[in-house]
Amino acid sequence: MHYKLTEEIIALSDSQAWNFAKLEWDFNFAYYSEDLQTCLCGHYPIRNICVIRNKKNSNQTEVGNCCINKFLGIEDGNKIFTSIKKLKDDNSKSMSAEVIDYIYNKNGISDFEYKFYVDIYRKRNLTPKQLAIKVSINDKFLAFTSYETNSHFNRINLVLKWAENNSSFDKDFILSLKKNCERNGKLSEKQKMALENIITKFKIE
C-alpha cells in the first residue's frame, strides 16, 4: 500500500524523488464521507478524507487521513475529524479553536459567526438564543465538511483547472459558484445543473 501511495503522489508531482515530491504537497481541505471510499494507497474502507494540493503544479488529490499523517507528515486533518465526530454525536458541543479558525479561513462561516463563537467558546452556560446560534454554526461546519460539499468543490476546481489552458473562457460565473459554495456549504440544484452543463458542453474531464 505504501508503494502505491508513493507511486501515485510522485506521478502527480514535479519531482520524481519521493523525499522531495512529498514536500510539494499542502493540506487544502478535509471531509467526512458517509459512503465508504478508497484511499489513494488502495486501502478500503475509509471515511476521513483529506484533499491535498501541490504547491508547484496545482494538482489536487485525495488521501485517507491515516496515510496523510504517516507518509506525508501532514496532520492538519486530525483536529477537524475529531470535531466532526464530536459534533455528529452532539452538535451542542464545541469545535476546537484550530477548527474554528480553519472553517473561518475557508469562508465557511461569517465574520459575525466567527466572533460570536470566539466570545462564547469558554462559556459553559449559554442562553437558549446563544445555544441556537452555536448549534447553527456547528451544523454549517458539518455541512462544509461533508462529501456533498467536497464533490461540488472538485467539479468547480476541475473547470478552473481546464480554464487555465483556455483563456477565452470567462471564469467569473465559476468563481461565483466557488464563493457561493464556500459561503453556503453546497450548491443549489440550479447551480449544480449549470455547472454540469458547462462541463458537458466543453467536454471537460
Rank of each mutant, 00 (worst) to 15 (best):
F144P: 00
K161M: 08
N91V: 09
Y114W: 14
K106S: 08
D101Q: 15
D101A: 15
R124A: 13
L160I: 13
N165G: 15
F141H: 00
K140C: 07
G108W: 00
S146F: 01
N138M: 08
D101T: 15
Y114M: 14
D89G: 14
I109H: 02
S146R: 00
G108K: 00
I156F: 04
D101E: 15
V118P: 01
M95P: 03
R122I: 07
E113P: 10
N154Y: 15
N157I: 06
S167A: 15
T149W: 01
K129C: 06
F112S: 11
S96F: 04
D89V: 11
D101K: 14
T127E: 05
F144C: 01
L142D: 02
Y121M: 08
M95I: 07
F116C: 07
D170Y: 11
V159H: 03
S94Q: 13
K115G: 10
S110M: 10
L160R: 07
N138R: 06
N125M: 13
S110N: 07
I120Q: 04
N125I: 14
N154P: 06
E148H: 00
K86L: 15
S168F: 13
S92K: 13
Y114K: 15
L131C: 05
D111F: 09
R124Y: 10
L158R: 04
S94H: 14
N107K: 05
K123P: 06
N107A: 07
M95A: 04
S136W: 05
N107S: 09
Y104L: 07
Y104C: 07
Y102C: 05
F116S: 09
I137Y: 03
S110L: 10
N107E: 05
S136Q: 13
K129D: 08
E98W: 06
L131R: 08
N150D: 03
K86T: 11
I100R: 02
S146A: 05
S92I: 12
V118K: 10
S92C: 13
T149N: 08
L158K: 09
F144Y: 08
K115I: 14
K86C: 10
I156N: 03
I137P: 02
R155M: 14
F153I: 10
I120C: 06
K85C: 08
A97V: 09
I109D: 02
T145I: 04
L131A: 06
F144D: 01
A97F: 09
N154I: 09
S83F: 01
V99A: 05
Y104D: 05
F153K: 05
Y121H: 12
F112H: 15
N154L: 12
S92G: 12
F141M: 07
N91L: 10
D119E: 12
T127Y: 05
N150R: 00
L87W: 01
A132Q: 11
S146T: 01
E98A: 12
E148F: 00
K85N: 11
K86I: 11
Y147F: 12
K88Y: 08
S96H: 05
S94E: 12
R122V: 10
I120P: 03
H152R: 12
E164P: 10
K88H: 14
D90H: 11
R122P: 03
Y114C: 13
L87R: 01
